[in-house]
């Protein structure tokens, strides 16, 4: 009766990844480039894409954002509540939805053994490209800035975001070697085989 019903195994995976995104926001930031600490929350978002596949990743991000909107202090820095979605960074949060989905889509096209190059392209395209594409226009809208000015303000985040995208690719590769079921295509095949028994 419900067409979009997720297998219960995947409900568990989506829930655990949504929780992982939250937990990575609680881990104190790490300083990579100078004094501005970067948080690992976006790492969680990009990893969800690379490991869960397109729409399950978007679902995990959606669940996470829903809990934030409900008032749980799960965003990096302990932020939460509806105020976050009235602030200037709203687009960068909403951009995670299509961003994670695109990462998943590209990784799914890589079959059973997505290579490091594909993972890297996916993380950069989804984690930076799509997120900025949604984030910058909304930033300029909230702030009454031109698109160029908003893009200029965002420039400071680019080095950290590139570093996290590269990290995502290597972490996803390491995870998928250690746990083959972390490849979306492998997982799907296993579920299908399980159903035939």
């Amino acid at each position: 009766m419900y067409r979009l019903r997720l297998p219960i195994v995947d409900v568990a995976r989506v829930a655990v990844f949504a929780a992982l995104i939250a937990a990575l926001g609680l881990v104190p930031g790490v300083s990579l480039f100078g004094p501005v600490p970067i948080t690992l929350q976006t790492l969680g978002v990009m990893l969800a894409g690379a490991i869960l596949g397109s729409w399950r990743a978007a679902l995990a991000v959606g669940v996470f954002l829903l809990l934030v909107a409900a008032g749980l202090p799960l965003l990096a820095g302990g932020r939460g509540g509806l105020g976050v979605f009235a602030g200037p960074s709203v687009g960068f949060l909403l951009g995670w939805l299509p961003g994670a989905a695109l990462i998943g889509w590209i990784v799914e096209r890589g079959g059973r053994t997505p290579g490091i190059g594909r993972l890297l392209v996916a993380s950069l395209a989804g984690g930076l490209g799509v997120v900025y594409l949604v984030g910058i226009p909304l930033y300029s809208l909230v702030g009454g800035l031109t698109l160029g000015q908003a893009a200029l303000f965002t420039l400071g985040f680019v080095p950290g975001d590139v570093a996290k995208a590269v990290l995502t690719a290597f972490v996803a590769r390491g995870t998928q070697r250690a746990y083959p079921d972390a490849v979306p295509a492998v997982h799907r095949e296993r579920l299908r085989a399980g159903k035939e028994h």
């Binding site: 995976r13 995870t175 746990y179």
Partner: peptide, 18 residues
Amino acid sequence: FAVPLVVSALRHADALGE
């Protein structure tokens, strides 16, 4: 830090699913 974390998270998820 991240690889063992994600692998453990997946193990937890799959045990939970079962």
